[in-house]
């Protein structure tokens, strides 16, 4: 396919400047959704156009990019986005979390801790944490302005009243820096604690909804809960069938039509590193 004639990382410099200004504002007001002039990207809305625009705005020739979807580097859309930047920006790519300067992700935070200087870019479908409770943007903006978040606590309370627990397992709402309520993109609540005081910069891009927001490094991110119903994360009875990890988020794989199943790490890089270490140990 002939794609000559596009700027570095696809977007023109004017657009990147607009995006960078938006990102700076987002970093300055942690958790606040900053509107921006979303561009049509050469992939559909819903495929990560917000995250792609954020990455395109911040990436430089020396960056090393990792792209994951569902925690894995080898899912089709992760492959496609990685290839897009390899083609349009000519940057180095990696699957190793620790080697990446930018990690673009959909639905997961890597298991390996991030370090200072790294940037985690989330693809966000619906940025507004109050959206299912109030469909109108004009209303939710007011609620944020007034820190009027009681409606969410009522919803969580209703969960407890009905189900005896908070029945939200992903996209679990958080409060950033004791101020803005934020939707962590639909990551499992298992990953929520990783957002808190993370040394890396976390940027969130919602293209279709035209919003960018951010969690600067070492910022407090608290998952909403009650004193008597504290926030807790998922756990599994099993360990990863491939690497034996007992501390990672597990994907369930159906292996036969008789209902046999196995559990493996959703983070493919974490799993492969552990497998390599195990076989090395076994060899020694």
């Amino acid at each position: 396919m002939n794609t000559g004639g596009y700027n570095f990382a696809y977007l023109d410099e004017q657009t990147k400047r607009m995006l960078r200004r938006t990102i700076l504002k987002a970093v300055a007001i942690p958790g606040y959704q900053v509107p921006f002039g979303d561009r049509e990207m050469p992939m559909p809305h819903g495929w990560g156009t917000g995250g792609i625009q954020v990455t395109a705005a911040i990436i430089g020739p020396d960056d090393v990019l990792k792209v994951i979807d569902q925690g894995a580097d080898d899912t089709t859309n992760a492959v496609s986005i990685r290839k897009f930047f390899a083609k349009t920006a000519g940057v180095a790519t990696t699957t190793r979390t620790e080697d990446a300067t930018i990690v673009q992700t959909r639905h997961r935070i890597p298991e390996k801790p991030l370090h200072e200087g790294q940037i985690l870019v989330y693809q966000v479908p619906i940025p507004e944490p109050l959206r299912w409770l109030e469909p109108r943007e004009t209303e939710t903006r007011k609620m944020h302005a007034l820190s009027e978040y009681g409606i969410m606590h009522v919803r969580l309370y209703e969960d407890i009243a009905t189900h005896g627990r908070i029945a939200t397992s992903y996209d679990y709402p958080v409060q950033v820096n004791d101020r803005y309520m934020m939707r962590p993109s639909p990551i499992p609540k298992f990953d929520n604690p990783k957002m808190d005081m993370n040394p890396a910069l976390q940027l969130f891009g919602a293209g279709r909804e035209k919003r960018i927001y951010a969690v600067p490094p070492y910022t407090k991110v608290k998952s909403l809960d009650f004193d008597d119903y504290p926030f807790e994360v998922q756990s599994w009875d099993q360990s990863c069938a491939l690497c034996g990890a007992g501390d990672s988020f597990l994907d369930e794989i159906i292996t036969s039509d008789r209902g046999d199943r196995m559990f493996v790490c959703s983070d493919s890089d974490y799993c492969q590193d552990r497998q390599a270490a195990r076989s090395k140990e076994a060899a020694e």
Binding site: D69, G71, S169, Y170, P186, P188, Q234, F249, D251, S266
Partner: peptide, 12 residues
């Protein structure tokens, strides 16, 4: 697109 992770969270 894959939603394995969210679905797994719901399954659990």
């Amino acid at each position: 697109l894959p939603h394995y992770v969210d679905f797994q969270s719901e399954l659990v």
